[in-house]
Computed example of a mutant assay.
Amino acid sequence: MQAINPELLAAAAGWRRAFHAAPELGFAEHQTAERVAQLLQGFGLEVHRGLGGTGVVGTLRTGDGPVIGLRADMDALPIQELGEQAHRSGHAGCMHACGHDGHTAMLLATAQHLSELRHFRGTVHFIFQPAEESLGGAQKMIEDGLFERFPMDAVYGLHNWPGLPAGQVVVNPGAMMASLDTFEITLTGQGCHAAMPERGADPIVAAAQLVLGLQTVVSRRLSPLDSAVVSITQLNAGEAINVIPETAVLRGTVRCLQTPVREKVQRLIGEFVEQLPQAFGVRGQLAYQVGYPVTENHPQAAEAVFKAAVAAVGEGQVHWGRPPSMASEDFAFMLGACRGAYFWLGVDGVEPSRALHNPYYDFNDGVIEAGVRVWAQLVEQSLPLA
């Protein structure tokens, strides 16, 4: 493959730091999307705005041939940045703590690199997606006609990955990331004086037992070979220290790697909520929100990523069939609508990277070249050379 211009890599690092300094939350990436569109136009690509609200698609056509899509997410997180780097967030309570600024910069650099070469026959759609962080921007783009307006033979996505050495790649022939569902449980009892609990029905005691009981869904109701996580993340009840409240509300999340397991966990949570509180004279009500599916690669597309990555960064730098993550990713929606694959790109340098969603996280600009090389190689092997 052609070498990546060092001046382009320097420009990409500059774009990345500018995005980091001006983060925007999901469906509010107006300045980010405008800058992306301006750059794509400057590269000579067709530019389409407004898919899924603030999404952008840049199209590079070089004659008849196969069509593939490459996707980057653009949104930031509602986190106050604590880092002290010169390009730290200028927006209070908002930062790029997941590296989407790096994803966007890498894909822009790939678009410029390929637009200058144009040495293949076919079409590449560069997809810049809004609202990946729990808001389902991928699904919104699909609902807006992403794959009808831009038919593709395959679509690909990546995520930077702390804990993996810089420039290394992980891709699996199946699951990469878990599904994501959320739930809210309302427990209704009978309020009373805290000194006379026998005169009421305590929803807090029922909530405490339910928190413990729900952990047995994974430990005792599923096979040890199944993968699932049930986490209670909020418990809200009461206003006065001497009053047993009328209600308690629990919220949490479910992650699974297999769709049948996901369906079973939902059913079991429903049974616990209906039956366990009754022993305390309390009524349980469940509101369950089905969210992101399992991010599951199509084997043939995963093999294409593996082959491209080996050519781009070296065989010893590419890993096949590593354990998937129990975190979630809305690229799963795109994989449900189009053949494709998702992979991880390592970012750990001499010092390990901060974790994703950490207030000190900052994308490692040193891996931009590896990301562009993998993207470009994937395009070159997917589309016939002119």
Rank of each mutant, 00 (worst) to 15 (best):
S227R: 11
A12S: 06
W344I: 11
A208S: 11
D330G: 10
T188A: 11
R121F: 01
P78T: 05
K140P: 08
Y361F: 02
G44L: 06
A13G: 15
A308K: 03
D365F: 07
L77S: 02
G346W: 03
P384I: 09
G69C: 07
F183W: 14
V169T: 15
A312N: 01
P277K: 10
L378I: 01
G42H: 03
Q377E: 13
I127R: 08
A37M: 02
E148Q: 14
P197Q: 15
M74A: 08
Q258Y: 02
Y288E: 05
G314E: 01
A337D: 14
L107R: 14
L114F: 01
G252T: 02
C192S: 09
E239C: 09
G65V: 04
G83F: 14
L108K: 10
S325E: 08
R88W: 04
L39H: 14
G26P: 04
V217G: 01
A195C: 05
P165M: 06
G281F: 00
F120G: 11
H48E: 10
E369G: 11
D153C: 11
G200A: 04
M1I: 05
L212V: 14
Y288Q: 08
H96E: 03
D348H: 08
T182A: 06
D64K: 15
V124L: 13
Q38A: 13
L40N: 13
Q168V: 04
G52N: 00
A237N: 13
H357S: 05
E246M: 06
G44Q: 02
P203T: 05
K307V: 15
L39K: 15
A341F: 01
A97R: 00
M1G: 08
V56H: 09
R262H: 09
G174H: 07
V155C: 09
H103F: 12
M74K: 11
Q190E: 07
F272V: 04
E81Y: 08
H298A: 06
G93A: 14
Q80V: 02
L212R: 00
L276P: 13
A309F: 00
T247A: 15
Q129T: 10
V254K: 12
R49L: 03
T216H: 07
I269L: 10
G252K: 15
G191R: 10
P173F: 00
Q289Y: 01
D348L: 12
V282Y: 01
A332I: 13
Q190P: 12
H20E: 00
A33C: 05
H30I: 04
G137Q: 02
P165K: 06
L25Y: 00
E143R: 13
Q209Y: 07
P23V: 03
N242L: 09
R262Y: 12
Q190L: 12
M74R: 03
W344F: 07
M141D: 05
A208V: 02
W161C: 08
T188V: 06
T186M: 12
L117Q: 15
L158N: 10
P352A: 14
M176V: 03
P352R: 03
G145K: 03
G174K: 06
H20M: 00
E132I: 06
R255H: 05
Q381E: 08
A207V: 10
L180C: 14
L286R: 09
E239Q: 15
Q266M: 15
D73F: 07
I269E: 04
E315G: 11
A332N: 04
A76F: 02
R373E: 01
G316N: 09
H91K: 13
T110E: 04
